[in-house]
């Protein structure tokens, strides 16, 4: 399977779009699963898939082949999502500041929640989805990327170090800080949801 990627990458580097198309067909679903879990929103996830592959096309000459192509691609996806979430959070902050009333803030949160698909299918995670975007936006680029690669992608610390060009200690610290920040936002909500369920 990896050799198909290798052949496709070699073609893409020569400027052959068919080579790149193979990579899109082989990896776009995995990238979508990742971006959806990071944003909790179908439309954002699809936009991020496109953005990820466009960035990958521009940067494919920088892919050195030491990590798996999928890992490299997921790092780009995590960075694309970071940019989107950061832009959105700062826009929402400005909106909340401008309206300066609670209704305004609630509306912003309602908009985030309204875009989530099939909440009944997601059971407890409705509450998490509502908070996912602001929670993820609190992470730094590095924290988000290593957390996503470790938690959602199940990549080993060694693989993460390879693709992120960091030392194991730095990767572990980033994962820890990401978990800390996420817990701070999500655990009170999860507690409320659990109590409601009881």
């Amino acid at each position: 399977m990896e050799s198909i990627d290798e052949a496709a990458i070699a073609e893409a580097r020569r400027g052959n779009p068919d080579g790149f198309r193979v990579l899109v067909e082989r990896h776009s679903r995995a990238v979508y699963r990742l971006t959806y879990r990071m944003t909790g929103n179908e439309h954002d996830a699809e936009d991020l898939v496109q953005e990820t592959f466009l960035r990958a096309a521009k940067q494919i000459h920088r892919f050195d082949g030491r990590a798996a192509f999928g890992t490299w691609l997921h790092r780009i996806a995590a960075n694309c999502a970071t940019d989107l979430l950061r832009a959105r959070t700062s826009r929402e902050r400005r909106m909340v500041k401008a309206t300066k009333d609670e209704d305004g803030a609630q509306e912003v949160m309602a908009n985030v929640a309204a875009a989530t698909p099939s909440p009944e299918r997601l059971a407890l995670s409705t509450e998490i989805l509502r908070l996912l975007t602001p929670a993820m936006a609190q992470l730094t680029e590095m924290e988000r990327a290593v957390f996503v690669l470790r938690h959602y992608d199940g990549r080993s610390i060694e693989e993460i170090c390879e693709v992120m060009k960091v030392k194991p200690g730095a990767a572990k610290n980033s994962i820890f800080r990401a978990v800390q920040k996420l817990r701070r936002v999500l655990e009170p909500a999860l507690g409320r949801a659990a109590r409601t369920a009881v």
């Binding site: 699963r33 959806y36 998490i128 996912l132």
Partner: peptide, 17 residues
Amino acid sequence: TLAGTLDALKAIEPPEL
């Protein structure tokens, strides 16, 4: 508690494509 939070994050399943 930690596992509950992180597992819940992972449990978010994207819609069928």
